[in-house]
Design a protein around this nucleic acid. Structure first.
Lengths: 234, 234
DNA sequence: ACCTATTGTCTCATAATGAGACAATAATAA
DNA sequence: TTATTATTGTCTCATTATGAGACAATAGGT
């Protein structure tokens, strides 16, 4: 099925995903770079005529990252007229050799149902789509300009993530199965954008009784080895 | 512009609104009853081809309640295949004398961008739309069956409202400009679905320094008169 | 055996909350 | 006028949570 195949998709409806990863103490997201234009955008796609909206978002993530069973949460639907800029999509498609009539469905107005995902950075296998040169990680603190309203989408995703972080205890989804308390703290610090007090953080996390303690991790560093933890199942 | 006028609206995209009001100690929402069928549904509508998504929701509310400048928040977009039940819309329209071809846009699949609103119960002037016999208040604790997935939409709206209640301090939007501490507490109790401790609630609210104290309210009851409060502007 | 950086746990001060006591008071009844 | 009643506003005290730091334990290196 090619990207231009029209029968398969609902017109006017797209999805975009803000995929968060964590590496080297930094919170990052995935961005695609389109051919020639150099324009950057969130990974996204269209919804099949017979496909659940959520399934479309999952499928899109699977295609770009190779991952199944991801933490995925819908957070907002963007539908302002200001995001209707047919010349943007036209330029992207032209750079790929497609020259569409101005009444083609892909040049119509779209609303974007937006999701954010939390994934284990190490597990991802990045795969660009047909319109892109590359898909790569970018630090959230230092994002370049993105097409359309995608910078605003990222801001809202990050805001939602912050608001839900404690209540839903989802921070661990950015780490591998087992992690140290320090790694978990770094995730929280990267998301909140501020340093946290080590002892208070540790006491709080242990007090919630959601962590399971495992063996120690000997890193070769000359100091006490930290325990590994995982989130308690069910 | 009639409801069947097709050029004006985006296909496949609808909005629905969960309009919360508070009266006699109960949290209530607005429901429409369709002609003949007796089916109940959330007030909603379609998005103009040149209309912001949020503007469409505001317009819909204005039409049903007569109110402008409402607290309105988008909370989720429902897009499962399970909500695609063309026979439901067909029956509703048939009851109004419209017999559409099965490929008519109103019988297509729709995703619903859903909003919740908080309004002053006393200010509303209810106005049914062309397809409805009535629009009326129903207690949230004792909702009847609604069409499609509208019961699920209400549940999610209430959940979002609960989660945001303290963080955003939006409870006051359900009351008139001036209110007693007891009235405010009743709003919180109705939303959370549980009794709160009077003294703790009062201390907390006053401690937030968002309330302005006005004159006392003499109700004629034989006990100490409570102060009236309003939310501090800016 | 000593040094260093980091970890896990403890203590103490401060802030927030739960639970109730109690005086003030607006209307009514005696 | 005085007593009664229901409710309100404010206090107090116990309990719990959080901020800030002290300190011993320890994995390696010197």
């Amino acid at each position: 099925m090619t990207v231009l195949e029209t029968q398969g998709f609902l017109p006017h409806i797209a999805f975009d995903s803000v995929v968060f990863g964590f590496s080297k103490g930094k919170l990052k997201i995935l961005l695609m770079e389109y051919h020639d234009t150099g324009w950057l955008a969130l990974p996204g796609g269209f919804v099949g005529k017979n496909e659940d909206l959520d399934e479309a978002a999952k499928r899109g993530l699977k295609e770009r990252t190779g991952l199944d069973n991801i933490y995925l949460e819908q957070f907002y639907t963007f539908g302002n007229m200001a995001r209707f800029r047919p010349e943007v999509m036209q330029t992207i498609l032209a750079a790929n050799g497609f020259h569409l009539d101005s009444d083609h469905w892909m040049l119509d107005r779209f609303i974007s149902v937006s999701y954010f995902a939390l994934i284990d950075f190490e597990k991802v296998i990045l795969t660009p789509d047909e319109l892109s040169d590359s898909i790569a990680w970018y630090e959230i603190e230092n994002l370049p300009n993105l097409i359309l309203d995608h910078n605003a989408i990222v801001r809202k995703a990050l805001q939602t993530l912050k608001e839900n972080l404690e209540r839903k205890l989802i921070g661990g989804n950015l780490l591998p199965e087992r992690f140290t308390m320090n790694e978990l703290q770094q995730v929280y610090e990267a998301i909140f954008g501020q340093k946290l007090r080590r002892t208070t953080f540790q006491r709080k996390m242990l007090g919630l009784e959601i962590l399971e303690r495992h063996e120690k991790l000997y890193t070769g560093k000359s100091h006490k080895a930290p325990y590994l933890y995982s989130f308690r199942k069910v």
